[in-house]
Computed example of a mutant assay.
Amino acid sequence: MIQRIQSIWLLLACVTISCLIFVPIVNTSIGSAQYLLTAQGIYEKVGEQSKQLEASLPVLISTIAIALLALFNIFNFRKRALQKRIALVTIVLIIGLSFWCSQYAKKIPGGLENANYNVGLFLPVISIFFILLAIRGINNDEKLIKSADRLR
């Protein structure tokens, strides 16, 4: 059913991974310049002015695709086995995206030695946690349906 708890968990996972687009993952300061890394790219902020140094369109597209996959998975409520498989694929894709972002973070000026880690670093982990809770909800639905079938 669409009103089950796993729909809420999948929606929260979608929103969490979507926040990765706007929330900085890593930032570092060199002199008066501050460098930020988001899923959109590397930004240099000097005073109030901000300009994009390097765009990361593949990371941005991947982040949006993973968020849409989690959102699409909400509507597979009638096919629980497929819903679980898509949730597991989403977890693997989030892990891959996290690795990709970590490799991309090495390009930030000043390196990662002096970098400050922001909330964006923990968003993929939170999203994976929400998807795991959704899988648990799907398993509970399967148990409920199997027990109802035994009663018939």
Rank of each mutant, 00 (worst) to 15 (best):
L37Y: 02
R152S: 10
N114L: 13
I8F: 14
S62Y: 06
V46T: 14
G31Q: 00
N114Q: 14
I17C: 03
G31Y: 00
G111D: 00
L123Y: 01
T63V: 05
A115K: 00
F99G: 15
F129N: 07
A134Q: 04
Y43D: 06
A55C: 04
S29F: 10
L36S: 07
A39G: 05
R80L: 15
E113M: 12
C19H: 08
Q49H: 10
K146T: 11
C19G: 10
F72Y: 12
Q49F: 14
G41L: 01
G96Q: 08
L68I: 03
N140D: 14
Q49R: 14
W100M: 10
I5M: 14
A70Y: 05
F75S: 07
L53N: 01
S62W: 09
I108L: 05
I2Y: 13
A87C: 14
W100V: 08
A87Q: 04
E113Y: 11
G111I: 00
I86H: 11
Q40A: 12
N140V: 06
F122N: 07
K84Q: 15
T63G: 06
K79C: 07
G111C: 00
F75Q: 03
K51Q: 13
D149T: 11
G31T: 00
L123F: 05
I2D: 12
N114S: 13
L69S: 12
Q103T: 10
L57W: 08
N118W: 11
T90E: 15
G47A: 04
A134C: 09
A134K: 01
V125C: 10
Y35S: 01
